[in-house]
Design a protein around this nucleic acid. Sequence first.
DNA 1: ATTAATTTTTAGGCATACCAAAAATAATAA
DNA 2: TTATTATTTTTGGTATGCCTAAAAATTAAT
Lengths: 219, 219
Amino acid sequence: MRTETVENYLKTIYNLSADNTAVVANQQLADKLAINPASVTEALRKLHELKYVIYEKSYGTRLTTAGVKMALNIVRRHRIWETYLVKELGFGWDEVHVIAEELEHVKNDKLINKLAEILGNPVFDPHGDPIPDAKGKIQKSNFIKLSEAKIKNNYKVMGVTDHSTAFLKYLDKHHLIIGAGIIVKTIEEFDNSIILVCQKKEVNISPKAAECIIVQALN
Amino acid sequence: MRTETVENYLKTIYNLSADNTAVVANQQLADKLAINPASVTEALRKLHELKYVIYEKSYGTRLTTAGVKMALNIVRRHRIWETYLVKELGFGWDEVHVIAEELEHVKNDKLINKLAEILGNPVFDPHGDPIPDAKGKIQKSNFIKLSEAKIKNNYKVMGVTDHSTAFLKYLDKHHLIIGAGIIVKTIEEFDNSIILVCQKKEVNISPKAAECIIVQALN
DNA sequence: ATTAATTTTTAGGCATACCAAAAATAATAA
DNA sequence: TTATTATTTTTGGTATGCCTAAAAATTAAT
Ligand SMILES: [Mn+2]
Ligand SMILES: [Mn+2]
Ligand SMILES: [Mn+2]
Ligand SMILES: [Mn+2]
């Protein structure tokens, strides 16, 4: 298998498995990678032979230790590049994901570690995702999705789970950037949309968007 | 054809054709790309269909206008990355070529132009090769190969045509870095090796090495 | 002009990474 | 529990980009 193909599969399995806690379905992979389910089945069989995953027919897939190691490496490269593009090269958080999708495949540890060093070994990327260190160790957190937030509580925006330009530009427009403080005002009974206050302005967030915003409770 | 394949062929054709002044033979491409001649024939036929080259059977290949444009673009990316790696990230001139071979395929004009801007839009890369500007314009020069140098004349090292780590480390050892002043002392009749003075020390250069060092005559 | 050496092309194959359609399984709803 | 729906796997194909071996063409040497 081409290493780029292997890397894309392992990274995606890792991301879909919530840090390897859940089993991943073929369908999820097919959707995320925009690939035919039949092709996914084939690929998983090969990855199983290569000992990167444990793939059980009609049940699901999880990463082996070797698979996790490789996945964390790719995730590190992706997130370091995203951070470098934003912090050192002046790109917006809404435009770096696609570029990092290419840069992440450039395999040179010295390069990535050099970038990390220049950045001061950051622990979170521009979307609030944790960056594994050179050994693969990752920061744990107790963040929740905005969709799980409670009325009248205070929160701080810590990240996003959708990296599309459209979504990030939408957040920018409402000042919902990382670090922003928010208060949940009401949750509409009708459609579960959330009305919150950010920078003294009221914003109406759809349930779909609320699923993609990561926040931390402020005591 | 995969864009990475197209890019590697066009870049190599460009480099072998001495800025598109000469026709390139299949054999040369096969050697440079470490690919079987039969595969080169196939690839050239496809590149001809795609209108990137004019390929005449059993005669040779040259780039079309579209081919030159694309080649210059890749060459620019390669050389900008090499320069960035040396100047901004502290890599040695002997280790950047392999990394740039990967980075050159990341296609994002804004990124390359940003790097170029940070570097002050450099005109030569760490090996003395000219960097095309964003429009593809390239600096002309009157440099010659050290193998063509005349006895007792003064020269300045301006570049190298071999980017291998082994060769560049060998040059470093003898202080034959870019910008170094040299005097050609004698040329051995027996084997055409060149004895020159650099930093007050005598160095014996083999004819093969002299072919790979680019110099400028000092009046 | 022949012969020899080299280069290029053809022909036949192989592995990778996809796809579409049909068959088999599993999950959900009635 | 059966029927319906959704997911997964199988089967049969396609396009790419390589390869080896042998034939053909070109170039160089005698
Ligand atoms: Mn990303
Ligand atoms: Mn990210
Ligand atoms: Mn180079
Ligand atoms: Mn160079």
